[in-house]
Design a protein around this nucleic acid. Structure first.
Lengths: 189, 189
DNA sequence: GTCTATAAATCGATAGAC
DNA sequence: GTCTATCGATTTATAGAC
């Protein structure tokens, strides 16, 4: 996420602050101060605080939608589909960990784009669930409750934005493949 | 979490609203309105909005600390320790899912109690890590990266508050034991 | 224990100069 | 593209009547 326009710069700065304190607790003055300008100047590039949030979240939600579409259209087995989903989350989160915080925690503050976001999220979860169900049907996955598996795996993937920035803790090299192993095979020897 | 005093009632109402929109986006008027009174009346029972948040979060953090202490003092093997940790999270979250949202998402808005909270969380994670490390050392757990296992399991447990209230999705009966199976044994057949 | 009224600070956003 | 100045609305919290 390199800023190419002044608008991008605002969005990236805002995403970083939103991650620290959440959308509602960050003021336009906070964003401006972090950029070394005054709050009024922001409005020469964006129309509202809401537009910043909307841009952060919808951009990411559409990336996930696009990635999931490719996975659904492949002819892989369920295990490989799941590995590709892990890859997708690691890749998007590594590229924009700050924005992922807004996607996870501030989507309810969307206004115009709230319904659209909820639609994208619903479709994503339904596709994810479909992959799990097919895996169970084909005897590739254990026959545990589908929603329990979905919840367990997706919770970990959605929390990646908290851990990925700490490069000391989690070596990013092969993070996706190591995470897939833990999620798929468990942790018992 | 049954309200016994008027103060409890305020805290429980606030926790429900904090879960929906986050601490910063909920006003004292919102809380009062949900209780059918005026905002000024709240101050006859609590001293500040901050005190409400602090009460919600610290109560829960101390419950986890207490539960972890019991687990650490038991002489179980690592697998049973992990199962007991899952039980602990399911139990506390089932009892107070709304409050868990604040614990996870609004801890950074703590003021006086922020340091204390961070201390409790650090100790909890260190104990958790110790259990995992011992499990790896004793050949009970796979020798994956300790922090990766900690991250993966803890992320799922911390997200329980989102899913547990949807009783349709996740049957709460045996949730803890089914979740332990998925987390420990994975999902591959 | 709840109310009305209001203080003091801060919010998002706009107008207009440079 | 950034600034100063400011508007109107909203925030937490208090004072004092009932």
């Amino acid at each position: 996420m390199k800023p190419e326009t002044r608008k991008d710069e605002i969005i990236i700065t805002a995403a970083r602050l939103f991650k620290e304190k959440g959308y509602s607790a960050v003021t336009m003055r906070d964003i401006a101060k972090a950029m070394g300008i005054k709050a009024a100047s922001l409005y020469n590039h964006i129309n509202s605080k809401q537009e910043i949030l909307s841009n952060i979240i919808i951009t990411l939600a559409e990336e996930f939608t696009k990635g999931m579409k490719i996975i659904m259209n492949s002819n892989n087995n369920s295990i490989d589909d799941l590995k590709n989903i892990v890859d997708l989350h690691v890749k998007i989160t590594t590229n924009n960990a700050f924005g992922m915080a807004s996607l996870n925690n501030d989507w309810m503050h969307l206004e115009d784009k709230l319904e659209y976001y909820l639609e994208l999220r619903k479709n994503y979860e339904n596709n994810f669930r479909q992959i799990i169900e097919l895996g169970i049907k084909n005897n590739e996955l254990v026959s545990a409750d589908t929603n329990l598996i979905l919840f367990s795996v997706l919770s970990t993937l959605r929390s990646l934005y908290i851990w990925i920035p700490n490069k000391e803790d989690l070596q990013n090299t092969n993070l996706a493949s190591n995470l897939s192993k833990v999620l798929l095979n468990g942790i018992i020897k």
